[in-house]
Amino acid sequence: MEMDWVLGLIGGVIIGGAAALYLLVNGRVMGASGILGALVDGSGRETANERLAFLAGLVVFPGVAALAMGGSDTHLTGNHVIVALAGLCVGVGTRLANGCTSGHGVCGISRLSLRGIVATVFYIGAGGLTVVLARALLGGV
């Protein structure tokens, strides 16, 4: 268990390092939902190359790293109806809120942005409530 915390901390610093690189070099906030979402809805057409390159790196690097580690597992529930419903909520929600865990959480809180802090309180609160309700109603997902 403690090993997981150490890996969490190391991985976290790497995530923050990536966000710092994207800010200081490219001058952008590293928010996964914004980078992808503006491609999907067309609002990020002028910066499409930068967005696509970011997403390509986000797929390729961990893909290779996971292969080198002998594979990885998301342990995602096999219930595709729940998965689709969850994906839809995450897609609509992050675009209404204009950010997710990386944009509001990592990039927002680190600059003491009120919006980032409020968003984080609401998504963690709703997430915790959902986990408790899901276990009570569905016996866990």
Partner: peptide, 24 residues
């Protein structure tokens, strides 16, 4: 939008355990 969106996002996150970065 911030409040409703973050709540919806949190619900989907809790239901699946995935947020946009890890999903990609």
């Amino acid at each position: 939008n911030l409040v409703i969106g973050s709540t919806l996002f949190g619900a989907g996150w809790g239901l699946s355990g995935l947020c946009p970065g890890p999903a990609v």
